[in-house]
Simulated assay, not measured.
Amino acid sequence: MIKKLLTIFLLILFSLNVYAQETVKNSHEKAMPGGMTKFREEVAKQIDLSGFVWNEPFSLVATFTVSKEGKMENVKLKESSENPEFDQRILDGIKRIRKKKWTPANRNGEPVESFYTLPMTFHPQK
């Protein structure tokens, strides 16, 4: 069981891609403490996939905003797995790390809200 969970974790870790879509042009870089790689690792650690088995890879897309104050907010799924329990586990995993403060994007030296898209691909266990 532990080997299966470790395999799933590693597959998710290397399958997660994070990129930002700016809501504001000419914005300076915003950042999660430790960078985006650390963010992807944290998300992968927080998602509990125990009890789920699937045969084909599939993708989900989560979205969220980072406020002017550096808070992660409005975590939602833009694309669903079509399994409500699985979707909720994904959202819960992402929300568990939202207490960490981000460095907000800025424009002309002023902090601004920014929008993130977090695509995730899940591969079946081998």
Rank of each mutant, 00 (worst) to 15 (best):
W54E: 08
V53S: 15
K30V: 05
K45R: 15
L49T: 15
K30G: 14
R40F: 02
K38Y: 09
S50R: 15
H28D: 09
G51E: 01
A31F: 00
A44Y: 07
G35W: 06
F39I: 12
G70H: 02
K45Y: 10
G34H: 03
E73D: 14
L60S: 10
L60H: 04
K45D: 04
G70C: 03
P33F: 08
A62S: 15
K30L: 12
V66C: 02
G35A: 01
K68C: 02
M32A: 13
Q46L: 01
K38F: 14
G70N: 02
A44G: 05
P57S: 13
L60V: 15
V75K: 11
V75S: 05
M36W: 09
V53F: 10
E29H: 03
M72E: 10
G70M: 05
G34D: 06
M36K: 06
K30T: 06
K38A: 15
F39V: 10
E42L: 13
G51Y: 04
A44Q: 09
T65K: 15
H28A: 08
T37H: 02
G34N: 00
S67V: 01
S59N: 12
K71F: 11
N55F: 11
T65S: 08
A44L: 02
F52S: 06
P33M: 04
L49D: 06
H28F: 10
F64I: 02
R40V: 06
G35E: 07
G51P: 11
A44E: 11
S67A: 03
F58T: 12
N55I: 02
K38L: 06
K71Y: 09
E29P: 04
G51N: 05
N55V: 05
T37W: 00
M36G: 14
A31M: 04
D48C: 07
M32K: 03
E73L: 12
H28C: 00
V61F: 11
E42G: 08
R40Q: 11
S59K: 14
E29F: 00
N55S: 13
H28G: 09
T37I: 10
V66G: 00
K71H: 12
V66D: 01
E29Y: 11
F52W: 08
V53E: 14
V75N: 11
E41H: 05
F39P: 05
M32F: 09
G35D: 04
G34W: 10
V53C: 02
N55R: 15
P57I: 06
K68H: 01
A44T: 03
A44W: 05
V75R: 06
R40G: 05
Q46W: 01
T63M: 02
F39K: 04
T65C: 01
K30P: 03
I47C: 07
G34S: 08
R40A: 15
A31C: 09
F64K: 08
E69Y: 02
G51D: 08
A62V: 07
V75F: 12
Q46T: 04
